[in-house]
Design a protein around this nucleic acid. Structure first.
Length: 587
RNA sequence: GACCCCGUAGCUCAGCGGAUAGAGCAAUUGCCUUCUAAGCAAUGGGUCGCAGGUUCAAUUCCUGCCGGGGUCGCCA
């Protein structure tokens, strides 16, 4: 692992310590002024403030010590006391050399020995997946890949919504339509039929109608509530029917996630927490954490110093049914018992922030979270051109399946427009279009900071120019093409060397990946990776425009440049893999 | 009403205590008989919502205001 920033920070910290100043002042960062330096340390300014001393005088002392290190080709003081640093080319080349034969050594071992559980706050059973679930899937998938690559043990859970009111709504709706089905007898008639009475298509029609009926008619809502409570209480026919709903939906959801290239270790749902609920409630009542209030069983979670009143977490409704707060809390018990995680991340829409704040407080207060740090990873919405959450042209919620088809179609159009892949077999062309369409969508989504809302603009996302997924895929394909030709010509590659400013800038960016990976993990921010890989591709393009590799007659120089190209590709591949974006072999 | 997020170039967005505020798109201008020009090089474009405050230093932190989005116990 090569973390230039950590290494340089260690050296600068030692210099501060040697001057009897706090080593924390030695933080080194990439330079804000690339025209002046590669790296900078601003610690002298802060140290001067703390010691009420002259910042330039402190900077002079630190710089004098740094100049003793053979790593630097230049140590300079600028402005009020910035310490500007440049590395020697020899050091940059040395730092790159391990990467050339072990590219995976870029990954920082930040997660070593630590366990992460990733909760995707998944879609609801019996409802089709739509764009609202897109960001959770894309961001969550990127995070699971990133944490795994950085050495964490990761367990990801789709965590389907399968235990709430929507199940009762479906059951009572179906009961109304087909009262003769055995599931509705109040006595246990098991074994129930193995064949589901409904298909996914049936559910997609059934649910909106049930939902609308409940909105319009209080009696229907009451029936749905009752069915929910009875399902949770264990009524055999309802449980059997519910299992059919779950199975039928799960198959459909797995297909949709797979087409997006997203996989989970666990396909659990809220219902999997059910066995833990009775004990949990018993314990929380005994320990006086849970109290009755207005007919419901709640856990008060207000804390001193709250800027506003935080409502309590409701464990049991007046009718005895549980809510998602209950299952979320019980799920923590399950996860602590099963994995004893250090960290649990919830990748869920920002609008659920308050809900998770309540759950986390309840977990902390009652101690049932073990030593796990619970963290809410919120995200903004994908909006239409009108600034409202993205809808179909007809105003309905767009299904994920349709969105992916739309992206692939647009990609196909773009590829054809450019006359790319024209003479490739049709199936390869289709595969490229799919990779480009999905890559465009994922990159557009991930390159925004998580919390920002963004506007869906298919035309912009699928462009091959600018900061887009297709641009990056194409950049990688171009490098592949060069390497393939070189191979055909029998040209050897060697360790990358620095002969020009373009090579120096490219090499520094290659070496910045470890720090970018660590920063992306720490901030749980995929956009850091997007920024990194875009900058890397741009620097490669400059290098590529300036230095013609194949035409280079100096054999050693050509070999070093091939090595640089290969190393750049290796880094782009690694980052795009973390983003969940495929790179075609050719385009 | 309270609380949370957001207001930065024509557009979409970064940056979030430091040196000349960045990128992509759009605009203008060069560069393809040369590794895929989907690129590269260059130019123009900003009182960082408004008003105060803290600091040697504020787009960045604090307060107030204006504008947009969101949330506020028995849905998820």
């Amino acid at each position: 692992m090569i973390s230039l920033l950590s290494d340089l920070t260690a050296i600068a910290s030692a210099a501060f310590a040697a001057e009897n100043l706090a080593p924390e002042f030695g933080v080194v960062q990439f330079s804000d002024r690339p025209d002046l330096a590669q790296f900078q340390c601003n610690g002298a300014l802060a140290a001067a403030k703390a010691a009420k001393a002259n910042p330039r005088a402190i900077a002079e002392k630190i710089a004098a010590r740094l100049k003793e290190s053979p790593l630097f080709s230049d140590v300079a003081i600028a402005g009020p006391g910035f310490i500007n640093l440049k590395l020697t080319d020899a050091h940059i080349e040395n730092a790159m050399s391990p990467l050339a034969y072990a590219p995976d050594s870029v990954f920082p071992d930040t997660g070593k020995g630590r366990q992460l559980v990733l909760d995707f706050g998944g879609p609801n059973v019996a409802k089709p997946m739509h764009v609202g679930h897109l960001r959770s899937a894309i961001i969550g998938d990127c995070l699971q890949r990133l944490y795994r690559a950085n050495g964490w043990k990761v367990v990801s859970d789709a965590h389907l919504g399968d235990w709430g009111l929507q199940m009762g709504q479906l059951i009572s709706e179906l009961e109304l339509r087909q009262p003769k089905l055995p599931y509705f007898e109040s006595v246990d008639l098991s074994p129930y039929p193995e064949q589901s009475p409904v298909t996914m298509e049936d559910l997609e029609i059934l649910y909106p109608q049930a939902s609308a009926a409940c909105k319009a008619d209080p009696a229907r809502l009451e029936a749905a509530r009752l069915a929910t409570a009875e399902l949770q209480a264990g009524r055999p026919g309802y449980r059997a029917l519910w299992r059919h709903f779950f199975k039928v939906s799960e198959a459909g959801l797995q297909r949709e996630y797979a087409s997006l290239g997203v996989n989970f270790d666990l396909w659990k749902g809220e219902s999997d927490a059910d066995p833990f609920i009775p004990d949990m409630i018993e314990r929380l009542k005994n320990d006086r954490f849970a109290v009755m209030d207005q007919g419901a069983l709640i856990v008060p979670v207000a804390e001193d110093g709250d800027a506003k009143e935080i409502p309590p977490l409701i464990l049991l409704k007046t009718d005895g049914a549980v809510l998602y707060g209950t299952t979320d809390l019980a799920t923590i018990i399950d996860r602590v018992r099963e994995y004893n995680p250090d960290l649990i991340l919830y990748v869920v829409d920002q609008r659920q922030h308050l809900h998770f704040e309540q759950v986390f407080r309840a977990a902390r207060k009652t101690g049932l979270g073990g030593h796990a740090h619970l963290e809410f990873i919120g995200f903004g919405t994908m909006n239409g051109a009108d600034g409202k959450p993205f809808k179909t042209r007809e105003g309905g919620v767009m299904k994920l399946f349709d969105l992916l088809a739309m992206m692939t179609g647009e990609a196909e159009k773009r590829i054809a427009e450019q006359g790319l892949a024209a003479e490739y077999p049709a199936d390869e062309r289709a595969a490229i279009a799919k990779a480009v369409g999905i890559g465009a969508l994922k990159f557009a989504d991930l390159s925004n900071p998580r919390l920002s809302n963004y506007v869906f603009d298919i035309e912009r996302f699928t462009r091959f120019e600018g900061k887009t997924g297709p641009y990056l895929q194409y950049a990688a394909v171009r490098i592949k093409s060069i390497l393939r030709r070189a191979h055909e010509e029998g040209f050897e590659a060697a360790a990358p060397r620095i002969h020009s400013e373009h090579e120096r800038q490219l090499a520094l960016q290659i070496l910045a990946l470890t720090d970018a990976l660590a920063a992306a993990e720490e901030k749980r921010a995929p956009n850091v990776l997007c920024d990194y890989v875009f900058e890397l591709s741009q620097r490669f393009s400059r290098f590529y425009a300036e230095h013609h590799i194949m035409r280079e007659t100096d054999v050693e120089l050509r070999a070093a440049r091939l090595g640089m190209a290969a190393l750049t590709l290796a880094m782009i591949e690694r980052v795009l893999r973390l983003l969940g974006i495929e790179i075609p072999e050719r385009m």
